[in-house]
């Protein structure tokens, strides 16, 4: 038996976390300075920080819940590092289970790992399994980003040439030339919609986990109530902030919508009869 929460292990984890924190601070300072150089309104920059911080807290707590879910088997150190660097909620639980299974242990993440060799092995599997994006990124990110920017710039130029003023473009839409470059303006919104839509659709009709079934992990009364509340509260607040020109409210709209959805989930779970609150139509 070894101590999976010894000071030494915490110090190793702390060093990794400090590196990540340093990188984030570096990019934050550089982007902030460049934003000021570009003449971006300081209020816009501050709003980006405020809304992101508020938007992050509830999700960060659910990431913390994953760290805790992995703690019975691995202690807190490995899950802490894995979910602070590259990790994500869905990957880490699966990777930990597979890694533990590879050592012939069938209890998965429910029982404490007592063999230090298995513990170290799990750390290797989880780390190597997730690190590939960092191998690809230095080669791919720049050319990919450059291509995308060039296409967008080309689109802007072509759109400007096609429609020197909006009136004439609207007056003769049939004659408008619809080039591939012009389409680039719609690519980013379409990408975002594909991403957000997948989670929205899954909250309406998706089934829960078949491998490790747990209550409330599939679409049902609670997920739809939460989703609906978050949508309605966000839309209403957005309209209110626009109508009454409450610019201070704008960065809080989405965080408030999110928290309202979670509050309704708690209320509905504790108030509705159990067979309704726990109903998941796709299992």
């Amino acid at each position: 038996m070894f101590d999976n929460s010894s000071l030494g292990l915490y110090l190793i984890a702390g060093a990794v976390i400090l590196f990540v924190l340093g990188q984030s601070l570096f990019f934050l300072i550089k982007a902030w300075k460049h934003g000021k150089e570009m003449g971006i309104d300081k209020k816009k920059l501050k709003n980006a920080v405020t809304s992101s911080a508020l938007f992050t807290i509830p999700s960060a707590l659910s990431v913390l819940a994953t760290v805790i879910a992995l703690a019975p088997a691995l202690g807190l150190v490995i899950p802490w590092v894995r979910l602070s660097v590259i990790g994500n909620i869905t990957y880490e639980t699966v990777a930990a289970t597979e890694a533990i299974n590879a050592f012939g242990i069938t209890t998965g993440i429910t029982e404490a790992i007592t063999d230090p060799e298995v513990y170290a092995g799990v750390a290797w599997v989880m780390t190597i399994g997730i690190c590939f994006s960092l191998v690809v990124l230095p080669f791919v990110a720049k050319p990919l980003h450059k291509k995308f920017l060039e296409a967008s710039k080309k689109a802007e130029t072509e759109v400007a040439e096609e429609a020197p003023n909006e009136e004439s473009a609207e007056a003769a839409p049939a004659k408008k030339k619809r080039s591939i470059a012009g389409f680039m303006d719609y690519v980013t919104p379409a990408l975002f919609i594909g991403l957000i839509g997948a989670f929205v659709a899954n909250s309406i009709l998706g089934a829960g986990s078949q491998k490790n079934p747990a209550p409330l992990d599939g679409a049902g009364v609670l997920s739809v109530l939460t989703l609906g509340t978050a949508v309605i509260v966000s839309v209403v607040l957005e309209l209110v902030s626009k109508k009454f020109k409450l610019t201070w409210l704008e960065p809080f709209v989405m965080p408030i919508g999110m928290i309202a959805g979670m509050v309704v989930a708690v209320v509905a779970y504790n108030v509705l009869p159990a067979d309704i609150a726990l109903l998941e139509w796709r299992g």
């Binding site: 509830p58 659910s62 957000i196 409330l216 939460t226 509340t229 978050a230 509260v233 919508g257 928290i259």
Partner: peptide
């Protein structure tokens, strides 16, 4: 348990 619907509901709305 409902972080994801809450997050993407709020984000998707606008």
């Amino acid at each position: 348990k409902q972080v994801i619907p809450a997050l993407f509901g709020a984000l998707g709305a606008g």
